[in-house]
């Protein structure tokens, strides 16, 4: 009887210990960000490419800041940014982001092109604020990597 009670207690404590370890060891997901790779043009949508036109508020904001009239989404990814652990996000075959959550809403953003670090920026990102890394492309077009807080419906696609 005493042995059974002892064993039951042992099993119970083990279960509690594992549960506690799981709770403590689970890494906080951190802030969820969304990154979009966009293409801006004053011309027509390129034929044969699956590009989704940027619509709504982001389209209006981009057109108010930049000279291009049309923006197309090449890729969109939402991802978690655990504090202190860099998150790699492939935006295209050649374009990659590495985002490090430094402390809560402060991030270190690194943009790589063809495997080479192009720019590193430390930036605070809060709800409503957007960071745009962009550059010129051929034929007076432009590329943009837009970073902001992920929306609740954004699927997680690391």
């Amino acid at each position: 009887m005493n042995t059974r009670l002892f064993l039951e207690s042992l099993v119970g404590m083990a279960v509690l210990a594992l549960a506690a370890r799981g709770a403590v060891g689970a890494e906080p997901e951190g802030t969820r960000l969304a990154a979009q790779l966009l293409w801006g043009t004053n011309g027509e949508k390129p034929a044969g490419k699956e590009l989704k036109p940027v619509e709504g508020e982001l389209d209006r904001r981009l057109r108010r800041v930049f000279k291009w009239k049309s923006y197309f989404e090449i890729e969109r990814k939402a991802f978690a940014t655990p504090v202190g652990k860099p998150t790699k996000v492939d935006m295209s075959k050649e374009c990659r982001l590495e985002v490090l959550n430094v402390s809560g809403d402060e991030f270190e953003i690194q943009l790589f092109g063809k495997g080479v670090l192009v720019v590193k920026k430390r930036q605070r990102i809060v709800a409503g604020e957007t960071v745009v890394l962009g550059g010129d492309d051929k034929n007076d077009n432009a590329w943009f990597v837009v970073l902001g807080m992920a929306k609740p419906g954004d699927p997680a696609r690391p």
Binding site: R61, E94, L111, L133, W143
Partner: peptide
């Protein structure tokens, strides 16, 4: 006005 920070990289080889 747009709450937007822009880093413009002219002549960058990214894509």
């Amino acid at each position: 006005q747009e709450s937007m920070t822009v880093v413009w990289l002219a002549h960058a080889d990214v894509l």
